[in-house]
Design a protein around this nucleic acid. Sequence first.
DNA 1: TATTCGCTGGGCAATATGCGCAGCAGAACA
DNA 2: TGTTCTGCTGCGCATATTGCCCAGCGAATA
Lengths: 159, 159
Amino acid sequence: MAIDHLDGRLIVLLAREPRIGVLEASRRLGVARGTVQARMDRLQSNGVIRGFGPDVDPAALGYPVTAFATLEIKQGQGADVRAHLATVAEVLELHTITGHGDMLCRLVARSNADLQRVIDRVVGFDGIVRASTAIVMENPVPLRIIPLVEQASDDTEPG
Amino acid sequence: MAIDHLDGRLIVLLAREPRIGVLEASRRLGVARGTVQARMDRLQSNGVIRGFGPDVDPAALGYPVTAFATLEIKQGQGADVRAHLATVAEVLELHTITGHGDMLCRLVARSNADLQRVIDRVVGFDGIVRASTAIVMENPVPLRIIPLVEQASDDTEPG
DNA sequence: TATTCGCTGGGCAATATGCGCAGCAGAACA
DNA sequence: TGTTCTGCTGCGCATATTGCCCAGCGAATA
């Protein structure tokens, strides 16, 4: 479950040079090829590494606007709302949360005007009582995981 | 900029079988190897595909708790706050959003109790006036991009 | 009509992969 | 103290893939 320092270095290396081969990775890390192979297998069957899916930029696809919407759901309609939102391609992720509002979702749109269409599509569903939207202006820290990986691997093996 | 249907199929294929080679991809798509190579190069230099970084699961690293925090920032302290949050490994992403100079960030923690430590760390900074946190309970739609890719490629080439 | 562009299909040397193997050091354990 | 695991090493081999070249060809374009 926990990762050691070699795992951490391997993940960082993979993040930096994603299309690197096992052999080259073993050279960079200074370990045997079989070791890298075994570590990668373990990390993947552990679920630490879910996959190596291509990291697609919505903006480059023509969806440069990102927003977060907090949704208030009618009692007992949760499952229907989830199913509805799953069918909307512009809904990139959906969470159920504590506190004010019941769900939080990340939306993308082709423009600010187009965002209105997306929101209408999202909230145009019976179970949704109210939606409150915040448009993203800047993204000073894009989604990242490497610092956490380094922290986790340092926790395990301080050397 | 826009992607055609072949690009879409290629991205979907890469998403489904990430460690696939160029040759195998060309066989699956029924096109020449050079074509796949050229498309991949183009998608990457376009910025449509940012990379193939390993998709690491924070939960498997020992951080199963996710939360979103909305921050209220003291006027003119934005840059300092951004720099501060960038140093906190548990801050996985940070956005500035519309409203009153506010920010939205995604946090992870080792437990609900540990989340308190993270929040203290986040808000224990001069420029932050107030923080409101929503803990994620379920994640019905994990971060995804494939439906949007399919939509974008269908827009371009309906056939 | 001439040109450009993207795709095809082939060939080539160099490289990487998947796989198996034995040896070895350290840790756990009786 | 001796035994058993476990993980890493370093090696070899057959096969598959890569990176790079080329000429031809059809469609769109000037």
